[in-house]
Design a protein around this nucleic acid. Structure first.
Lengths: 156, 156
DNA sequence: GGACAATCATCTGCTGTCAAACGATCTGCA
DNA sequence: TGCAGATCGTTTGACAGCAGATGATTGTCC
């Protein structure tokens, strides 16, 4: 993203310090949404959105899942999960079969093609992520992940 | 928000640990957007959105500003700032006067009514925020703010 | 003075997210 | 068995964020 260079060029805006601490928290959370959005946009450009990547990764790791399970684990809204799976299915990366035990739900399964695509993505992504998170040291990134995880109640 | 109680009630979803670290970062950033959204929704319910609150707070602290300055400092998009100021002006919390030195820009000024509204909001918000951020200690909150700030290039 | 690029506020269109509602299906209970 | 309520996937409508274009204004360079 050009944001990094841009902020360097011009007198970069700063959260003005008089902001009440509580509001600053929220302002920053809101801003971290921008990071996620940028990552999303970039990943989509590369042909595999963050949501799609997460789904493939999870299916690869834990086997067939319902869309419900996927959306709960990955914090992607059910209605959004529909289109994520639509896209993945259209490209042949997953199969949707009705779960015979509960015909309301699907058993979403990763295909061999999906596994190959996943492997590709794993290699192309790190460079971009290094770019996005480069202001932070590896320790700080780990810490950020830990704090956000704690804030969101995902356990220690 | 009911999120805290809800996560306690039901088998709470967790980011499944096999997630590659890089993706987890982004997944968490994305999820923290949900925190910001929840805060926004709550604040709007109380009659003063987060954006509006931030603007009032800044105008109160640093005096009249152009919309451009406000949107840069507060990381609110220019086009969004238009409607934020529209709302504030309609309710009489700010005045928009043309800057005589540069008639392209406005000098947005907080009114006495705006100051009163700001004072009200300052008292009603902390309770909700304490609830939202209670998983973190004050030190951790400060650290989270620092890390996100660094990630976004707002300086140390 | 006049041409040109830059800036401010604004509007429009696109995308992603979410809440609410719906049909199909399952579960529990009488 | 039959019925009420819950759950799964889906669609729809509303809304925020963002990029790009526009009109008014400013500053700059010739």
């Amino acid at each position: 993203m050009a944001t990094t260079t841009k902020t360097a060029e011009r007198a970069r805006p700063t959260y003005f310090p008089q902001l009440a601490a509580e509001r600053l928290d929220i302002a920053l959370c809101r801003a971290s949404a921008a990071v996620a959005r940028a990552a999303d946009a970039h990943a989509t450009e590369e042909g595999l959105g963050v949501g799609q990547h997460l789904v493939l990764q999870m299916l690869d790791a834990v086997g067939p899942c319902s869309q419900q399970t996927l959306s709960e684990e990955l914090r992607i809204d059910r209605s959004v999960m529909v289109s994520v799976c639509d896209d993945l299915e259209r490209e042949g990366f997953v199969r949707r079969e009705r779960n015979p035990r509960d015909r309301r739900s699907y058993a979403v399964t990763i295909t061999d093609s999906g596994r190959r695509r996943l492997a590709e993505a794993q290699t192309s992504i790190p460079a971009f992520l290094g770019d996005t998170f480069h202001p932070l040291t590896p320790e700080e990134r780990a810490q950020l992940g830990m704090l956000l995880g704690k804030l969101l109640g995902t356990g220690a």
